[in-house]
Structures are given as C-alpha cells and as structure tokens.
Design a protein around this nucleic acid. Structure first.
Lengths: 118, 118
DNA sequence: TATAAGCGACACCTATTGGTGTCCAATTAC
DNA sequence: GTAATTGGACACCAATAGGTGTCGCTTATA
C-alpha cells in the first residue's frame, strides 16, 4: 500500500459510487433538494442552519448529492455555494412510469367496486 | 432486559422502519419489483433463482419491500408467494413532480440556445 | 413412510452510513 | 493586524445493511 493510499484510506476520499436512487433515499438529502429548489444557490453554512446536525454531516450529504450529479458547487470567497441540478431525477421518473399503469388500474378497479356498491 | 427481548435482539425482528424511498434504493429490490410486475405472483424460491445471492438475502429484500407495503405475501402450501403492490410508488412520483418543471425549464432553455446557434 | 423442497428464524460477519470532534487554511470583518 | 467566519480533510464511532450458513418445521412427493 502506497503512502498516498495510506493517507486516503479514510473518510470522504472513499466515497462510494452513489446513484440517484440512493441519493434520494435519505430524508435529509431530500430536504436539501427541497431547499435548493427554492433558493437557487446557497452556501453550506446556510444550508446547515436548517438541520439539527452539524456542518460535517450536511457537507457529506451534499457530497453524495454531488456524486449523483443532483447538485453542483462553486467556491465564492470563503463560501462553497450549492446549486440544484434536478436532471438526474428524470431517471427515477422514467423508471416509475413503467409502474404507473399498475396503480391506475388498481384505482380504476376500486372505483368500479364503489360504483357497484351504490 | 427480558428473555423475550434477549431472544429478539437479532436479525429480522429488528427491522427498521423502511420507507418507499429506501425500499427502491437497492438495485436488487428494484429488480424484484420488475420481476413481480411481470409475473403477477411468484414464490420466494423462483424469485431467488434470478439473483446470484442466496435465499436468505432475497427473503430479506422482500421483507424490506413488504415493510414499505410495496409487496404482499401469502402462504400457499409450503410456498410463500409474493405479489406486487405498486401503490406506494405514487408517493415518489408525487414528490418528483415538484421538480419536474425544473428540468423541463432547463431543457427548454437548452433548446433555445440550440435554435439561436443555427 | 422416508425423503426432498420450501422457507422462517436465527447467529454471525464485513462494509457502509450517518454522525461526531479536531485541526488547519483561506477569506473577510473589525 | 488581529479576530471571526467558512469549510475541507481527516480520525473516529455506533448502528445498519447486505450477505452468509445452519437448524428445524411444514408440506409435498417417490
């Protein structure tokens, strides 16, 4: 194991390849998406203030979102500002559309039952 | 700690409260949803045959799906048959619809740029 | 009536997750 | 020029996730 690898064995360097599905699995990350949808652009410390957890935790969540390309960041002075990039969410919507008909059929069947009940 | 608690400290009894978002975060579980959408009803051993992992692992994934009410099971003879209940997926679709406009706007803006380019 | 199939209920293991606190560098404010 | 703000990069921790193998019960089958 090289020195570089030794140093880089821990923490954020070792971020797994996160996909969109895992990114939106966490409620904190969904809330971050919600916040960024309203604010257009927001620095880390401001985002952190909306959660009970510390800065490091929020920063990690944003790293996961960034890895899923749901978020873009840029440095402005000492701040790191985050912006929402909702594009990848389309992938989830497309996947869901395969099953949309299923629950619509179920709802329709239920309505028929209610009609017959009268 | 009571005896009952002692016995029930491990494994499946201690399943966390999973929501729909966490249920669809795992690729194996999404594949299970896909399989059940086609097959209408399928016993555990048949579902297991589609994955490289063992029965216990697939059973656990199905337990997570069941906890999220995405799946319903019934015992038939010695088999446990699973059926898809796609209803809860609507929750995800509703959540996504809030951000649909965002990426449509982005796409529209991109199209305008391409038009101007000509 | 043995024997095999199907599965639940564990115990157990390793890697990942989601959180913390600390240190330090850079930028901004007083 | 000194102090405060912002945040990256760790090290560290407990709990959870996703997998295994084994035991034993029930149901089907030769």
């Amino acid at each position: 194991m090289s020195l570089i690898n030794g140093i880089r064995e821990n923490a954020l360097y070792r971020l797994r390849q996160h996909d969109v599905y895992e990114a939106i699995a966490d409620p904190t990350r969904r809330e971050l998406i919600h916040l960024l949808a309203e604010k257009e652009e927001s620095p880390l410390h401001l985002l952190t203030s909306h959660f009970p957890t510390g800065r490091t935790a929020v920063s990690k969540h944003l790293a996961v979102l960034k890895e899923a390309e749901l978020v873009v960041d840029r440095k402005v002075g000492r701040e790191t500002r985050y912006r929402l990039n909702p594009g990848p969410l389309k992938q989830v919507q497309d996947w869901l559309s395969h099953y949309e008909n299923f629950w619509k059929q179920k709802a329709a069947a239920l309505n028929r039952l209610i009609e017959e009940e009268k």
